[in-house]
Simulated scan of single mutants.
Amino acid sequence: MAGALRPVVLLMLFASLLFVIDGIFDGVYPGGPAWFTGRYDNLAEIAYVFAILNTVVALMVARGSERSLQSRIALSVFFIIERPLTAFVLGPKPIESVVTHFATAGVELVILVTALRVWRLGHSLAAGDVDTLFSLETSIPAPPSDEAAPSSLRRPAITARNAWLIGGITLGLAIVLVADGVFEGFVPGGRDWSASGDDSGWLVYLFAAVALIVAVRAVHGGRLAMRALIVVALLLFVERSFSPFVLREQDPVALGLHAVAAFVSLALALATAGAIRAGPALERASVPSLEAA
């Protein structure tokens, strides 16, 4: 298998390409409709700055810099929040640009999870193995086999209590999001649906679906899914908290639904983080008894 850092570097370069594509879709090119014309408050041009910054950090990570890897982890968290927000808050954007924003956020989520895995693995190795880990030309040390664990113990990936807690909170969050969409009139025969402005409220259905899909895997103890669920919950917390101000929402019921969704999202993130910290439950395997003939 390729070096531990190679997937991270390749994903970072792919993210840089997505930043450039987003700038083109936004019309930020010489002679384009948004090329320093004041459109999007001249903030769409920053996509190219992000592409350059991301490429520079990728080259530094490729050289085996642990500090650069830590910096890239922080950048991933920023981009996961920034990309979905700037898809809407700067004004109406083409649908292909909105899709690119969310695709970039998805790639950044994968980068975050992969980089965290590499960083944690590096700190779990002996000092002499760290250079091997942070090399693009060597393979990742194989993790200990599960067969080495005592056969008398079984380790469920997550306790039943935490699984029910995560599942219940996610279901509650989905119900609140769907209720918000229905209240806003995004039903068959209702108001128009679009990807920007006041007509983008139908996206709550997409948010609910994503949360439920990720939670289905998370309640079974998938580490990647649980971390992804935390990110989704935090993104929803930010979106639900600030979208009323961006859209100038004044209806008290809509504001209440936003507030409830924000608090439930935060509760979901905390519950999932607590489940990860709690670790797997230890259950002793039952030994079948044999009856004497």
Results as ranks from 00 to 15, higher is better:
A2D: 14
A4E: 01
L11R: 14
L13R: 15
F14N: 14
V20L: 15
I24T: 00
D26F: 03
V28A: 05
V28S: 06
G32E: 05
R39I: 03
Y40A: 04
E45A: 15
I46V: 15
I46Q: 13
N54Y: 05
T55D: 07
T55M: 09
V57A: 12
M60G: 08
S71Q: 06
S76D: 09
S76P: 01
V77C: 03
F78C: 01
F79D: 01
F79C: 05
I81V: 13
E82Y: 15
T86Q: 09
V89C: 10
V89D: 10
V98C: 04
T100H: 01
H101I: 06
H101E: 11
F102K: 03
F102S: 01
G106Q: 05
L109W: 08
I111R: 10
V113T: 09
T114V: 07
L116F: 00
V118Q: 01
L121K: 14
L121C: 01
L121Q: 12
L121V: 01
H123T: 00
H123K: 15
A126S: 14
A126R: 15
G128H: 09
T132I: 12
L133S: 08
F134C: 02
S135G: 02
P144F: 05
S145W: 04
A148D: 10
S151C: 04
S152G: 15
R154K: 10
A160Q: 13
R161D: 12
N162Q: 11
L165E: 13
T170M: 03
I175A: 15
V176Q: 09
F183T: 12
G185S: 08
F186Y: 13
F186V: 10
G189P: 03
G190F: 09
R191C: 03
W193C: 10
A195Y: 11
D199C: 01
Y205K: 06
L206R: 05
F207K: 02
V214A: 10
A218F: 04
A228R: 06
V231F: 04
V232L: 11
V238S: 09
E239K: 08
R240P: 02
F242P: 00
V253R: 14
L255Y: 02
H258K: 12
A262F: 07
V264S: 06
S265I: 12
S265K: 11
L266I: 11
A267R: 07
A267V: 03
L268Q: 15
A269Q: 02
L270S: 13
A271N: 07
G274I: 06
A278R: 14
P280W: 05
E283S: 07
E283R: 15
A285Y: 06
S286W: 10
P288N: 02
P288R: 12
L290W: 12
